[in-house]
Design a protein around this nucleic acid. Sequence first.
DNA 1: TTGGTTGCAGTGGTCTGACCTCCTACCTCT
DNA 2: AGAGGTAGGAGGTCAGACCACTGCAACCAA
Lengths: 239, 239
Amino acid sequence: MPASLRRGPLVDAICERLARQYRSVPWLPPERALSARLGVSRSALREAVQRMEIQGLLEVKHGVGVRVVNKPQAPVGATLARELPDLTERLRQFAEVRLLVEPAIARAAAERAGPAERTALRVAHGRLGTTLDEAVPADLEFHRTLAELAGNRVLSLMLSSIAGLEAETRRITLEHVGLAEAAAQHARIVEAVERGDGDAAHAAMLAHVRAAREATPVLAPSFSPSGPRSAKTSAARSP
Amino acid sequence: MPASLRRGPLVDAICERLARQYRSVPWLPPERALSARLGVSRSALREAVQRMEIQGLLEVKHGVGVRVVNKPQAPVGATLARELPDLTERLRQFAEVRLLVEPAIARAAAERAGPAERTALRVAHGRLGTTLDEAVPADLEFHRTLAELAGNRVLSLMLSSIAGLEAETRRITLEHVGLAEAAAQHARIVEAVERGDGDAAHAAMLAHVRAAREATPVLAPSFSPSGPRSAKTSAARSP
DNA sequence: TTGGTTGCAGTGGTCTGACCTCCTACCTCT
DNA sequence: AGAGGTAGGAGGTCAGACCACTGCAACCAA
């Protein structure tokens, strides 16, 4: 009955079926039951599950079950961790990438955001609480929201991957910059996005990321993606 | 004998051992022999192999064997393909990302490259042949070399991931732009890097990527990472 | 000789069913 | 009511068999 007239590897077919049929349930059925239901062996099913786990679509917990998640940034993050084993170097390069990507995202968000998106951003900005434990995830969420508004999934994905591995740093950064100052910088970005002013958003975000980097004891930049000539991209109006 | 006193998942340990011991051989031993040698079951070994395949470290071919490779961009590329199933949209976003990232890479490369690196770049540039079949891989290689000189593995990785999925487009682009013109643009970049002039390298690369995008029937940009105000980043000296 | 064909041996792919390890929730005892 | 133990069920590992694909070498025909 589940014979199917496939040509390629069986595991691929299983992955597709899983992704299609169990997209919106919290947990997968037990492996034994599921393999029986799909008409494949447990081995093949396990290979498929493992594959999707690495891809960030599933999360298997020994003795518990297989949870359905959606973290497409997981494989990217894992790759980066493998490619840059040294934590300090990784964080330094992350900072450089943020310096390049975040302003571009802010500009794009300002130029594309409609009323609904602006509201979402305002909400995310409002969540920045008064304690570090609240602020760190809120800060991450703010930047994530902005990246989504920008409409470029590639940049968004890259930023998520980076954020996942530097969450610890954000705490230090926020502590040094100060919650009030960080909130003020966020506010300037929100303001620019509300006005649809791409240049201002770019400038505000650039200032924000620069402040974060300079307040954190990450090493000096080995190169500056935006160049030392500050008159280039931050010439736009800014409060 | 290979009992080992592990705590975590066995598969993790196998992956480590494989990565460590078989890093520099072209092929892995057959699964049966290898599982016996490592003292684990074939199932466990297969899970490890499959994992490393997804991570871009192995490449298994049915009926042939398991090849040892090193393509860290594979998982990123796969993720992007899954996140952006629509080919046109994917290529458009790729073009935008390149527009943002490549100039930054060129600048960094110019500011960091020493004599040896400059030679490597010159060699890569020299390989741009006279036929499309030669030019496409040579063009890819040129940009890859430049990214390596820039010294930021994150950007380099991202660019490789993109390149792997847009190789087909490069052919069209090169055809429209013309090999001679593309070579001239590359030459301007090389020149700037040789002089250590970051701004010029940035400008030359920006012009190159823009020309490529405008010559290719990819859709109009939904947003411009570098902004519509052309006076911003391309103000540097340029031939 | 040369060209295509066939068969075989070795590889990864899948299946089965058994046992081990871990987590949870329930149950018991205090 | 709380702390501790226990049984069930989840994933993890194992063993051995058979299936499917690939490459090559031996073979046969022109």
